[in-house]
Amino acid sequence: MDFTLSEDQQMLMTAFEGLLSRYREAPHGVHGYTCYSEAFQQELRDSGFLEITDQPGFGLLEAAMLIEAAASCPVSVEAASSMMIGPLVRDGAGPVALGWQVGRPVRYLGQASTLCLFEGDDVLVCARDECDLAPVDGVAAYPLARLVSVPSGARRIRAGEAAAIRRRVLLGIAAEAAGLMRGALENTVQYVKEREQFGQPLGHFQGIQHRLAEDMVMVRACRSLAFRAAFEDCDRQAALACLYAQDAMRKVIHDCHQFSGAMGLTLEFPLHLWTYRLKVLQGEAGGRAAQARSVSRATWPQHQTAADKHIIEEGVA
């Protein structure tokens, strides 16, 4: 148990921060709903960071650390799936998109070279080029496209092997959510230090301090749970980290918007670039209900009642 970065980890993070530093601020002026940068994605690909898990001495923990750091930037980039499951499924060099149901919007689908579609316990993998997609017009801060159809010849990965993919997806969501929450919270803390009302900075009011302090406790816990789960690469811990993150973000998103006032709802203020990604992650991979069920089944395996069986048969995910 050691919470300090090793020398190698320190070097890795310093190098990565060098890359991120150009994307730590959203471009000046009014943003769109999303702030995706092709250049950022390209740089990330060329830098070799996406293949972190192939590097000797590094693994999923370091991937989670990089994913968390990248997500704390207002500019979005697909890192989580590329790093976590890219090595297991990737066909081309580009990002990996995760689909949960045909007909629904998928993050980074337009940018991806590979699609993973979760179908029951299986995963279908295909080249993105072989899928049909349609544009989506919405307020989410991820680039999204609708998955219209997948090719009939998509590679089917069966339950056993697919479980590893699913586990790593949860690790990616947990780490990304931790970084997004950190970004949103840091932005909000800065805002309440500067904005004055009633003759003092908002951050002097205890009602605000306490809620932001609670959020900080959760954000730190999210990060450690995500990192530990990545280190252990275990189903239960991955679901637990993801559950905690998807639960915590409900309060963090709300508080950050609340304390940023109307300013926080404008497109010139970058808050939505974190929170409107979090809102997409809140229900990803089945959301809290699915994660809670996985945690529960892995921790307390016995006995299901009739009511319980009914829900399993209906399939909630």
């Binding site: 749970l225 209900a289 809670a292 529960s296």
Partner: peptide, 13 residues
């Protein structure tokens, strides 16, 4: 199950 898992997550946090 959901409440139990959330309580467990809080303990682990």
């Amino acid at each position: 199950e959901q409440d139990a898992a959330l309580a467990l997550a809080r303990c682990e946090a």
